[in-house]
Design a protein around this nucleic acid. Structure first.
Ligand SMILES: [Zn+2]
Ligand SMILES: [Zn+2]
Ligand SMILES: [Zn+2]
Ligand SMILES: [Zn+2]
Lengths: 145, 145
DNA sequence: TTGGTCATGTAATAACATTACAAAAAATCG
DNA sequence: CGATTTTTTGTAATGTTATTACATGACCAA
């Protein structure tokens, strides 16, 4: 791979060892943001690191999402770093997105997943992927009147 | 309103009486489709009826979605007519979308909604709107090998 | 060395959605 | 009724998100 292993020295986390340079840059940008970022926001953020075209970002995002290191929020057309290193061992993931401050809370719920499994069993539907996004106001923003 | 009350004679359903012409056209197009349609697909479909610009479709969709007569599928950037005349009396709505044939099954699940309410209660999150979209294969397409 | 696979770079284009402004139609009210 | 206000419509331009097509370079293995 094209990964040169000398670009990540300033990062807080140990990235999956085999990320390419572009993937590492995108994941780092997502991890340091406190709200979701669109592909074009990522591109702007990373122009200083040599990224120039949307496709470079989209390709990196595809891989990161595929590996569960990042998630796409369909209702925002934006992306977040995975906030839970165990989320791949869990099943369905849900996101609570604050419409006021933009912060996202990632969580898993076994009961919801079970409900879904029941429904799918009855209907004969084969679930491949589930999007669950709750929009509203986080506790902090509710208090802030 | 601009509704002239003479355009809907051929429809199978009784539309909400106060739809405007554009809203009626868009809802009829969605209702007659057997898969979700994007705004631009709707526009193409309705060019013969005089629609020319994306905004005409988007405006109609906004109203229809606001009133619960149509739903937006975030993971497809597309829209469907509401398949359940009582869906506005229920709470959370989920959509099972077949990746093979494109058909969408709209359903409500009280247990999932309750889980969500519990989670929101604990977290102090004020839920405004929930998107739940299950992607996979419908029974028919699973069988079709 | 050669061929295969994966990642990258670049340009162009497609698909989805909104802003801004003007005009027409409908509802409201004295 | 006519005057006012609100809603809907029409149109153009623009902004945002995502993909296609094609060429190149890096790595690996036969
Ligand atoms: Zn995660
Ligand atoms: Zn908030
Ligand atoms: Zn519905
Ligand atoms: Zn199907």
């Amino acid at each position: 791979m094209a990964h040169s292993h000398n670009d990540h020295s300033s990062h807080d986390h140990v990235w999956a060892a085999d990320l390419t340079r572009n993937q590492g840059l995108v994941l780092a940008a997502l991890a340091h943001a406190d709200t979701p970022l669109s592909a074009y926001q990522l591109l702007d953020t990373l122009r200083g690191d040599g990224l120039r075209a949307p496709l470079q970002v989209y390709r990196a995002l595809d891989k990161l999402v595929e590996r569960g290191l990042a998630h796409r929020l369909e209702s925002l057309n934006a992306f977040v770093a995975c906030a839970d290193e165990h989320c791949r061992r869990k099943g369905l993931i849900a996101f609570a997105i604050c419409n006021a401050c933009g912060k996202v809370d990632e969580f898993a719920d076994a009961v919801i997943e079970e409900c879904l499994g029941d429904w799918a069993g009855v209907k004969g539907f084969k679930v491949e992927r589930t999007t669950m996004e709750i929009r509203g106001k986080c506790a902090q923003c509710v208090q802030a009147v």
